[in-house]
Design a protein around this nucleic acid. Structure first.
Length: 757
DNA sequence: GTGATTCACTTTTTT
DNA sequence: AGTGAATCAC
């Protein structure tokens, strides 16, 4: 029964067997954290704790599902009864039950980020503020940040520090906007993502009876990825476990990568203050990766000033060196990685699932997709534009949301004239004015148009109102799928897509069908006791692209995703690509030192995903906003101890090197490729006569129709090229040029950006 | 009120 | 490059 415990090492065993009382587990990368957590929960259940009384909070829906699955394989179907999910999904559920206490109804809408920003834009416009200064993005992140620190609108306005801060940023009205935003969300019976946590805090603060109920309900509270929780989340868990004191948090400060979203490593310190008799267990042995990978990762994180709380080590084999690949362009980077992947697959007999390609931003995936497709290697992209963010999906969901909740202003704005039914901005504005003059909700005006407005506009509105009313009648009789299918058919959006015979139109049509299928699945799933449309909407609002499963049946695929998305995962071979300054570390992060440390932790996370082999790559140039840009290798490359690196050269570089080796003594071997590259190239190029006719600037446009001597050119796509040369001072210089083919001659036309390497 | 065209902005990561 | 907002012609 409990034989699984014998497979654990000592600290792991102690963490699993720890009885009552607060526990903090500092778990290094690859130290078997998930195993400990699942075994601990299994153990609790075996000892007789009712699964209904265990609350386990994870960072993603996927992680929750996986953990539930693993616990189920130990203790059986009882595992289904555990309260397990993300903070957002669990507390959305509780808020749904307790909505009345806060003045909401249980069918409240959940605004996604687009809804929030759209509402903010409206408010900014209504306030007559300049939307160039008050950018919805910025305002949103300020408000979000405030909410995550539990600063409500009143506190926000009353806080002199915040006010001077906003004034300094020339946005003194943010507090007023925040207040209006909160009001409008309330009137719309809607909560945004941050509200789900903020309002839970309010609920527990103002309704002690409710708090008490849940405090006693949950005998054990467990939190995974504790380093990524924000203050708002921490306070919820602290309150919930205040009575039983059975709180177990698992985290790794070295893997904290969500500070930008309000995550607070301080939570770990606060935890020790708030629970003085806490027991701390450190898991430091890595079972995942080779020594090379573990040590390289350690050498990176050691550069951060933030105090290390542990030392991760491994007894695994040394493993192969980290390969460095240099490419001329992002497209070549794609090809080189795809080729390398293909060769590794053949040589070592691996599957596609053994590989992951990790990048800093979603936009980087393109080159790898193309290259993998060309080699017929199946891949799956995690992240990026989520299925649920597609227009056609949001449109149908908006219909469903509005059917369930007629106060939902954002859903209303989306569907009132979709498909076109002759209700333009003017009419909508008129309705809004009438509603506010009469102090009634918009739906009151829309559903009784005749009472409020006369004239032609009324007819179209009335048709719309009748449509929605007919949907509402279905809500109590039909399940989510039947309502949704009916809405899709009769609202006209399915028909509009069906009539669109373009490729995109077809795929949109299929997407809507896919959404309907997923609603069907939701309804057919015996685990869901509430099959109402309202229940479905609550779940679907909190799904992300990471939760999508691919349905083509073939599971042997290479994984492409951002490093953030890779948290908690592991792969045999990992490629970390796009290691260029300004990209990774991200330019935005270079401004403050603390944030650079977060980027470094991100790199640490990326490295520690690899089990056997790690490859890193960078390109000399890449497309950026549709423009070609010269890139420099990332400082992170130079931060890896060169002893761990092996440099893979382009064929050209290999040829050059072999010639050089005939003359040169092999001084540093493969040491520090990046640093020595410039000098090496300089050595080769120096003997050649330097071009004299461009004295002031190395790449000044000249009237010559040929490339100057001493310039190496890499042809890129679309008539662009990367030119490299060594200037008089021995510096390696690069520039993007544009070629135009005139007859047989290639003309040097213009120069883009110029940078010294 | 609708559709076409131009303009401006984006790009860090995600619940 | 690609999107969404703003502006203009009908």
């Amino acid at each position: 029964m409990t034989d699984y415990i014998s497979t654990l090492n000592e600290p792991q065993r102690q963490a699993v067997l720890h009885g009552d009382g607060p526990l903090i587990i500092i778990a290094g990368a690859g130290s078997g954290k998930t195993r400990v957590l699942t075994y601990r929960i299994s153990h609790l259940i075996e000892k007789g704790v009712d699964p209904f009384r265990i609350l386990s909070l994870t960072f993603t829906n996927k992680a929750a599902g996986e953990m539930r699955h693993r616990i189920e394989s130990v203790v059986g179907t009882e595992a289904r009864n555990i309260w397990m999910g993300t903070f957002h999904s669990v507390f959305a559920k509780i808020l749904r039950i307790e909505a009345k206490a806060l003045g909401f109804t249980s069918n409240f809408s959940i605004y996604d980020t687009d809804d929030s920003k759209s509402l903010l834009r409206s408010i900014i416009k209504e306030f007559g503020l300049d939307d160039k200064i008050y950018r919805a993005n910025v305002v949103f992140s300020r408000i979000s940040g405030a909410k995550n620190r539990l600063v409500g609108p009143a506190d926000y306005l009353a806080n002199p520090l915040i006010q001077t801060d906003d004034a300094a940023a020339r946005m003194p009205e943010i507090g007023r906007i925040y207040k209006a935003y909160t009001m409008r969300c309330f009137q719309a019976n809607a909560m945004d993502f941050d509200d789900l946590l903020f309002n839970t805090n309010v609920l527990f603060r103002d309704h002690l009876d409710i708090l008490n109920k849940y405090q006693h309900k949950f005998k054990h509270v467990l939190v995974d990825e504790f380093q990524d929780t924000n203050v708002s989340q921490y306070l919820i868990t602290r309150k919930l476990s205040a009575v039983n004191q059975n709180i177990c948090v698992v985290g790794d400060d070295a893997q904290s990568i969500y500070a930008f979203r309000g995550a607070n490593i301080e939570n770990i310190l606060n935890f020790e203050k708030d629970f003085p008799d806490v027991r701390t267990i450190k898991l430091e042995q890595n079972y995942r990766s080779t020594k090379t990978i573990v040590n390289a990762a350690n050498s990176i994180i050691a550069r951060n000033r933030a105090q290390l709380r542990k030392s991760v080590f491994t007894d695994n084999e040394d493993g192969t060196l980290i390969e460095v690949i240099k490419a001329a362009s992002d497209n070549e980077e794609g090809r080189l990685i795809a080729t390398s992947l293909f060769e590794a697959k053949m040589q070592d007999g691996l599957h596609n699932t053994d590989f992951a390609i990790l990048y800093r931003t979603n936009a980087q995936s393109r080159a790898f997709e193309e290259a993998l497709r060309r080699l017929n290697i199946k891949y799956r992209i995690i992240g990026g534009l989520s299925f649920y963010q597609r227009k056609e999906i949001k449109d149908l969901l908006a219909y469903l949301r509005f059917t369930v909740n007629q106060s939902d202003e954002e859903a209303f704005k989306r569907i009132i004239n979709l498909p076109k039914r002759g209700i333009g901005d003017t009419t909508v504005a008129k309705i809004a004015v009438v509603a506010s003059e009469n102090q009634v909700p918009i739906w009151e005006v829309v559903s009784n148009v005749n009472k409020y407005v006369a004239g032609r506009a009324g007819i179209a509105i009335e048709a719309f109102a009748d449509l929605i009313k007919s949907y509402q009648l279905l809500l109590d009789k039909k399940d989510a799928y039947d309502v949704a299918a009916h809405v899709a058919k009769t609202s006209g959006i399915l028909k509009e897509l069906y009539d669109d015979k373009t490729v995109e139109g077809l795929s949109r049509y299929e997407n809507v069908q896919a959404l309907l299928n997923s609603i069907k699945e939701f309804v057919d799933n015996p685990d869901n006791d509430d099959k109402s449309l309202s229940a479905f909407l609550q779940v679907v609002s909190l799904l992300t692209s990471a939760d999508e499963k691919d349905d083509d049946g073939d599971n042997d695929k290479v994984t492409l995703m951002t490093i953030h998305g890779a948290k908690g995962l592991e792969f045999r071979n990992v490629y970390i690509v796009g290691l260029e300054e300004d990209l990774f570390p991200s330019q935005m992060m270079l401004e403050s030192r603390a944030d650079l440390e977060e980027e470094r932790r991100l790199f640490y996370v990326a490295i520690t995903r690899a089990e056997k082999k790690l490859t890193v790559s960078y390109a000399d140039s890449r497309y950026h906003y549709g423009r070609l840009k010269v890139c420099e290798p990332s400082r992170f490359l130079m931060e890896i101890d060169p002893a761990f690196l092996k440099v893979a050269k382009t064929r050209k570089a290999e040829r050059e090197e072999s010639q050089e080796l005939k003359r040169d003594t092999p001084a540093g071997g493969s040491m520090s490729f990046v640093r020595s590259l410039a000098q090496k190239t300089a050595k080769q190029q120096a003997p050649q006569p330097t071009v004299a006719h461009t004295p002031s600037s190395d790449f000044a446009p000249s009237d010559t129709s040929k490339l100057a001597e001493g310039m190496r050119v890499e042809h890129l796509k679309f008539g662009f090229g990367l030119v490299q040369k060594i200037d008089q001072n021995g510096n390696d210089r690069k520039a993007i040029i544009k070629f135009e083919t005139a007859g047989e001659k290639t003309l040097l036309l213009s120069f883009a950006k110029l940078k010294i390497v």
